[in-house]
Amino acid sequence: MASVTMTVNGKTVTATIDPRTLLSSFLREHLRLTGTHVGCDTSQCGACVVHVDGRAIKSCTALAVSLDGAHVTTIEGLASDGHLHPMQEAFREHHGLQCGFCTPGMIMSAVDIVNRKGAMLDEHTIREELEGNICRCTGYHNIVKAVAAGAQAMAATKVAAE
């Protein structure tokens, strides 16, 4: 067993865990944050994407013990003060989800794309940047629209806040 302390959605958590516990299992089973999903075993589907120290990673391909001291944000931590994050709003507004299973990872990846690439995202860029997130329901059409709109909404929110 090994000890790990990390900050998840703003709260500090400490646990003693089997070292083979993946971050995804730690979130789902120890913290009961079941919004992070696991859809494959080969780190390709992206349903498990969370942010670690501000960067998107696949939580099924990281050991929780290895992230001692890290700041983790999951889909449950994206909305603040009861307000949906602009990317969450954009997915709803543009029907960027159907069964909802890939959605948490998709949204976390989308926010990361905007953090890295800015607000003005063309379709080609969005499609390439979503390489690590698989959706079986939407054919991606509305996800692409949602990410583009969410990116602009994030920029607008930021401007409004400044």
Binding site: S43, Q44, G46, V49, V52, R55, A56, I57, K58, T61, A62, S109, D112, I113, R116, E129, E131, G132, N133
Partner: peptide, 9 residues
Amino acid sequence: IGDPAVRNR
């Protein structure tokens, strides 16, 4: 290499 999340690790 890989995808953005993989490149971050």
